Structure formats: C-alpha cells, structure tokens
Computed example of a mutant assay.
Amino acid sequence: MKPKKQETSACDDLFRLRLEQILDQRHALYRLAGEIDWNTVETRFGGLYAEEGRPGIPIRLMVGLHYLKHTFNESDETVVARWVENPYWQHFCGEEYFRHTLPIDPSQMTRFRHRIGEAGCEFMLGLTVRTGLATQAVSLASLAVVNVDTTVQDKAIAFPTDARLYHKARSALVRMAKGMGIELRQSYRRLSKAALTKHGRYAHARQMQ
C-alpha cells in the first residue's frame, strides 16, 4: 500500500519538544532538509506502491536514509543505528519529535532500492544536483567536467601466470637473439603458443596434473 505522508500534528505535545525547537537551524542538515523538494520525491516513487495492503514506510524516510548513508559512508545497518542517536538525521528524514527506536529494519533499505531500480537511484542523484544548483552550492562550471575513477573498472590485463610468463620470456629471448644476429636452430614460436593454449584449457578444466 502507498506510504502515508509524515504529517505534522496541529498542536504541540506538552511533554515533548519539537526537533525544530531544540536544533540549530544554521546546521547544514537542517538547512538542507528545507531545500530538497520532498514532494517531488513522494510523487515520483508513490506510484511504485500498491493501492491496497499494509501502509508502506514513508518515502521521505527511506530516501533520507539513503542520502545519509552515502553522505557519511555508512552501511544499511549502521545508518539505521546512528539515525536513532542523531536528532539532525531524524529531522532531515521528516521526523517531528525525537524517536528512541529504530525507524526500520535494515533489510528494508535493500527492498527499497530494488523497488525504485536504477532509474530511481539516478533520479535521487539528479535531485541532489538540482538542489545544489538552487542553493548555489554547485555551479554550472563545475558540472562541465566529470572526473571518473577507473580504479575498479574492468581492464584488458592478463593475469601473469607462470605459463604466460614463460611464453613472454621465450619471445623476448628470440627477439634479443635476432637483434644480436644469432641464428637459432628453432624458435619454438608455434610450439610455445600451442602449449600456452593447452595449459589454459587444462587450468579451466581444473586438470592440473
């Protein structure tokens, strides 16, 4: 079922103070919570829920937890645990009063990511960029160049097995001999290539002997 919005109560609780009354309104997270267009987020992801059934978790809470997770480099488990300890995090996720219990089970973070898919994650990233431009925290000039970290990118690098190193060493020796004018009786070029191929097939079949 579609999640209910986190509605604020019309009257104050006589025994509790609102988070906005005890927090520093100059804090970065407090100010950021008022700049993000949460209505757009709820409109975008609200259609992914069924009309009937048990009410879902508030969308702002789920999206806010994911923002906090990536901002502070937390895991699903730790971001939920730290949320209970941090009133600024709770205000950022739309809470009105401080809560002393876990907001969700950490496994629901994974379910939410599966629900919104890759397109939903890109939408959340784009929303942060638009918010940065609106608050002038990000300039258009900084978006003209993109730095890509290729540390974990797949590269065409062959694993240096002993057989491959032997094959390269033989080729290097043949080139050196040719450069020095030494005539070799046999270069083993075809035999070495065939042996390297056969070794790869045996290794793939786990027939090491």
Rank of each mutant, 00 (worst) to 15 (best):
V145P: 10
A205C: 07
N147G: 03
L48M: 09
T71R: 14
C121T: 11
A195I: 14
K69A: 06
L133T: 08
S75C: 05
A141N: 14
F15C: 04
Y88L: 15
Q90L: 05
F92W: 13
K2L: 02
R170G: 00
H91G: 00
L32G: 01
W83H: 07
K2A: 05
V80R: 04
M1I: 05
Q25I: 02
Y188G: 01
E118Q: 12
T40F: 07
V41T: 02
G117H: 08
Q153E: 11
P106V: 00
E52T: 10
P55C: 03
Q186A: 08
R164F: 11
E77T: 13
Y97W: 08
E96D: 06
Q108V: 02
R189S: 04
W89E: 01
R111P: 04
P58H: 03
R82Q: 07
R44Q: 13
T101N: 13
K69H: 09
I116M: 11
S75T: 15
T71H: 05
K155E: 10
A137Q: 14
G120C: 06
V152P: 00
H199Q: 06
K155C: 11
R44Y: 05
I104V: 14
I104F: 05
I157R: 13
R113V: 10
R206C: 08
G200I: 13
E35C: 15
H91L: 15
P58E: 03
V148G: 04
T101D: 13
F112W: 13
E20K: 13
M1W: 01
M124W: 00
T131K: 02
L48T: 00
A156R: 12
I157E: 12
A137K: 07
Q207P: 00
K198A: 07
I116F: 07
S139C: 04
A10V: 07
D12G: 02
A50V: 08
T128S: 15
I104R: 10
L173Y: 13
L32C: 03
M180Y: 12
Q209C: 02
Y67E: 05
A205E: 15
R175W: 03
G179V: 05
G47C: 09
R206Q: 14
L17K: 15
L125C: 06
Y202N: 10
V148S: 04
R189N: 04
A195L: 14
S142V: 03
K69V: 03
A119E: 10
V148F: 07
S187L: 12
M109C: 11
R82L: 15
R60F: 03
R82W: 04
T110I: 14
T135L: 08
T71M: 12
W38D: 03
K2I: 09
L133W: 12
R113Y: 02
G64S: 06
S187C: 14
L127F: 09
G132M: 06
R111Q: 09
Y97P: 05
S9V: 10
L19P: 01
G47F: 04
C93D: 02
T101M: 12
I57W: 07
